[in-house]
Amino acid sequence: MSTVQEAGIRDWDFPRGVASVALMAGFAREHGVPAARMLQGSGLTEQALADPDAQIDAHTELAVIRNLVRELGHRPELGLEVGRRYRITTFGIFGFACVSSPTLGEAITFALRYLELSFTFCIPVARWQPGEFVARIHDERIPADVRRFLVERDVTAMYQMLCDLVGHRVDLVRAEFDFRTPERLDLYTEIYGLRPDFEQPHNLFVLDPEVLDKPLPQANEHTWAMCLAQCRELVSRRRARTGIAAEVRERLVPRGGVDGFAAPPGIDAVARDLNMSTRTLRRHLDAAGTSYRQLLDEVRRALAEEMLTATPLSVSDVAIRLGYAEASTFIHAFKRWTGTTPSAYRRGAITAVIR
């Protein structure tokens, strides 16, 4: 039996910070390419790269990536060279949350849930199965002209993060890429500790699942909780909904607040209210990078947190008001959203108020 965990996002078109662009501009500068050429057509300035709070859209970073490939694409292992530069500290609070996680497995689960706080263009899907942990790297939606570079960059960055988390090289069981075998394999074996297989159906790497349960050397429960809260807040700000997603979300939020909340309308009812077919609504939401289920989860989570902190309702009552048939299903969903149970969340909120 296997367990699959998908990322919290399905596409690379999400807002991001400038740290990745700054890293690539620095790499290019070391190889004789001035920042002006790297930033050409992106709308960015060198001053903007120094602002840790600056936000850009993914297409802006993509413009810089195309400049990098144009200027230095003659280097046969460019993606690997750049990818190994990404370290835990490159990722800010996202990286600190990973490094303070209890185990490598929990760090991976967190990273998938909050993947939009990274700089990736490749979307990983994790599968836990007997004897191995498989991370399949999806690149289907990446533009063809930069696809190989981004596969090499992102897979190497992911692997580098795993090594940083445990404090030493993580032994891979195998690694596979879907492009043809490079002429030189030195850097691949140097970085990954093995010779990957090429011309395979998918891009993926495989770990021994036992390594996922080992405590991380810098695990800290207090720091992890603090980082989780900051990451949730950051994601909420970035997920300001517009367009069709905003219209659907508006129909899922109860008019009378938590007191007026009943079972949420299904997607068919929402589609009828928007004067479109269910299939059309699904297509529009997919194009917006979200889904009915994801929006419903966002609404349910916000309402659950409000009811647990502002009302005396039992966990079972909260579950019923959110439209769950059983409290156990709600508890499982809440733990997936927040990393803790509803009861523990309520105790933590009460403790914070008392303090």
Rank of each mutant, 00 (worst) to 15 (best):
T120A: 15
N203E: 01
A126V: 05
L194Q: 02
A135S: 15
I142P: 09
V170I: 04
L187R: 11
V151D: 03
P182T: 02
P130L: 10
V99A: 14
W128N: 00
A135V: 11
Q160M: 11
R232A: 05
L204R: 00
Q230D: 10
A229Q: 14
A225I: 10
G167D: 06
W224G: 09
Q160I: 03
H168K: 05
L212M: 05
Y192P: 01
F110N: 11
G105R: 07
L117P: 10
D164A: 08
Y192M: 00
F179Q: 02
D208I: 00
D197S: 14
Q160K: 10
T181Q: 11
C163N: 00
E199R: 03
L204Q: 01
R195M: 10
E106P: 15
L204V: 00
N203M: 03
D154M: 06
L104K: 05
H168C: 05
E221G: 09
E190M: 09
F205A: 03
S118C: 14
A107D: 13
D171A: 14
R136L: 12
P201H: 03
A175T: 03
L112Y: 04
F96R: 15
K214R: 13
P143G: 01
V211T: 11
T120P: 13
P124K: 01
D178M: 08
E176A: 06
E152Y: 06
F198K: 04
V134H: 00
C231L: 13
